[in-house]
C-alpha cells in the first residue's frame, strides 16, 4: 500500500452547540492529518464528538472555526450548493443503518450518486455493475433493499459509496447493525478497498475489532483528540 501525505488536513477545528442558554462544546482545537490511502478509526465514548468530526470532514455540517482542507480544497469556505456538489464528487458515505432508499433496487441505489455526474446512461450502468462486482453483489442488482440481508445491504451501501471513485470514504459505525459474520465481511471489504483500490477511509466505531483493521486509531474524549496505540495491522 502506498500512502501519500496530506489528503485531509484539519487545523484548530472547533464546534459547539447551543442548547437553551447553555453552550455545549463538542470539538475543541482539533488538528488532524490523514494521508491518502490511509484507514483511520475514530473511537471514543458516546457524545465525545466523533460523529460530529466525521460529519464536518464529510461536509454535511458546518464548523464554528478552524480549517478543513481535503484534497487541497478548503471546504469550510464553500457555500451550501458548492459543498453539495463537492460532496457528490469527493465523499462516499457508509452509514450504520445502510440508508438505502427502500423503493429503489440495489442497482438504482448505487446509481444515485452518478446521477449528479455528467455520465451517460450506458456509462452509469458500467460503473454501477463494476461497483456491485467489487462488493460481490452483481447478481442481486435488481433486488430491493428489503429483499437483502443486513450484510448485503451494507455491501450495496459500500458500492454506492465507491461508485463515483470519491476522494474519501466516511463510515459511521458501519458494522454497528450487523451480526459477527456480516461485520467481518464488511470489514474485509473495507480493507480490500484500502489495499487494492487505495481508498482513504475514515471510520467512526465503538467496536475494537473494527478499529483494529485501521492503520491508525484516534481517540476522542470530550471533544479533544488523542492518539491511540497503533492497531496490530
Amino acid at each position: 500500500m502506498n500512502k501519500k501525505p496530506g489528503i485531509v488536513e484539519i487545523r484548530n477545528l472547533c464546534k459547539a452547540y447551543q442548547r437553551g442558554n447553555q453552550l455545549i462544546t463538542v470539538l475543541q482545537e482539533i488538528d488532524l492529518d490523514i494521508d491518502e490511502g490511509e484507514f483511520l478509526a475514530l473511537m471514543g465514548p458516546s457524545g465525545s464528538g466523533k460523529t460530529t468530526l466525521l460529519n464536518l470532514i464529510a461536509g454535511i455540517d458546518k464548523a464554528d472555526s478552524g480549517s478543513i482542507r481535503i484534497g487541497g480544497i478548503e471546504i469550510t469556505a464553500l457555500a451550501e450548493t458548492e459543498l453539495a456538489a463537492w460532496r457528490a464528487n469527493n465523499v462516499g458515505f457508509i452509514f450504520q443503518f445502510y440508508n438505502l432508499i427502500p423503493v429503489l433496487t440495489a442497482f438504482e441505489n448505487v446509481e444515485l450518486p452518478l446521477l449528479l455526474t455528467g455520465l451517460s446512461k450506458g456509462e452509469r450502468r458500467t460503473h454501477v455493475e463494476t461497483a456491485l462486482r467489487v462488493v460481490n453483489l452483481a447478481d442481486r442488482m435488481d433486488h430491493s433493499p428489503g429483499e437483502l440481508s443486513g450484510g448485503q445491504q451494507q455491501r450495496v451501501a459500500i458500492a454506492r459509496a465507491i461508485v463515483t471513485d470519491p476522494t474519501i470514504l466516511v463510515a459511521d459505525e458501519p458494522t454497528g447493525d450487523l451480526d459477527r459474520d456480516s461485520a467481518n465481511d464488511v470489514l474485509e471489504l473495507m480493507e480490500r478497498l484500502v489495499h487494492e483500490l487505495g481508498k482513504t477511509i475514515i471510520m467512526v466505531t465503538h467496536d475494537p475489532r473494527a478499529a483494529n483493521k485501521a492503520h491508525q486509531i484516534k481517540h476522542l474524549d470530550k471533544g479533544v483528540l488523542n492518539a491511540h496505540p497503533q492497531a496490530d495491522f
Partner: peptide
Amino acid sequence: VFEIGTLRALGFQR
C-alpha cells in the same frame, strides 16, 4: 426523513 438526509448527504441539492 432519513431518505431526505441521505439524498442530501450524497450531494442532491435542496
